[in-house]
Design a protein around this nucleic acid. Sequence first.
DNA 1: TCTGAAGTGTAGCCATGGCTACATTTCAGC
DNA 2: GCTGAAATGTAGCCATGGCTACACTTCAGA
Lengths: 155, 155
Amino acid sequence: MARAVKRKTGAAAVRLPAELTQARRFSKTRSAQSSALLEDYVELIADLLTTGGEARPTDVARRLGVSHATAIKTIARLKREGLAPGRPYRGVFLTQEGQKLAARVRTRHRLVVDMLLALGIPAEAAEADAEGIEHHASEATLKAFAQFLQSREQN
Amino acid sequence: MARAVKRKTGAAAVRLPAELTQARRFSKTRSAQSSALLEDYVELIADLLTTGGEARPTDVARRLGVSHATAIKTIARLKREGLAPGRPYRGVFLTQEGQKLAARVRTRHRLVVDMLLALGIPAEAAEADAEGIEHHASEATLKAFAQFLQSREQN
DNA sequence: TCTGAAGTGTAGCCATGGCTACATTTCAGC
DNA sequence: GCTGAAATGTAGCCATGGCTACACTTCAGA
């Protein structure tokens, strides 16, 4: 049983499209994960700025449940990528681009949460799941969510 | 504007529950990501075993879109965690635990895909999004998805 | 039986995102 | 003004999950 069956020596060159499609899907999922972190930071910074007028690394760290060192390191990456300017010891802000990203992320987050709530999922679970789900919802999915919610409202 | 406002020196001790809740949510999301990879591997190995009778590292790598070295390294981790036994050069299999996990993951995957399809999302987008979403759907959310689909069928 | 191609495994590199420990800066209150 | 506590920043460690390069096994076919 353990012995491998006949090697498909020649067949390896004939790559099946289905195989490639699946590989592409996984790649997409992997890259989504790398941008997810930045999106979370930007969204949180925007939230801190609007509610408190300032966004300090310590607050970011506390809200995300990571050490302040981790938060500062990631914020440095935000700066490198032109999303969040800020001078040392003076808190962090958002560039126009950062603000646009934050707005998009916030809208998307609310949409996903509303969708889950509409399905009858308890608030706490809906919030928690949305945190993970939102980074993997394509435009098509978001549109479908919006349409579902809209059709719901009309009844 | 850049100057930080009054430090809330004493208030730091009075941790808001909302803050902790959010931090907990993010932690949960982070840990979900670490198990997501193993789940994907186990699901794929199960699929290869049922359709082809064997699961070879190269096939796994090809389907996931990673190098064979990466696949082998992760499969080694599966072995360490008691999910997938296998002797060198003889393909990989699943322990009972691994099979149970695979079954759970497969059911969940299909549920998420069906849900997205039911919302009118195109098949390719539904498959791709499900790949990311499935790892973040709690029991409550899965139950809600199932109920939604069931109510749909009755109409 | 031999051999070479394909598959498998190993070594070692990189980036990311965690962490702790330590150094520096700021600023409220004396 | 000083000073000490809190915030901020830096250094360096670890694990994970990618990769390439190279070494070793297997086995189909000559």
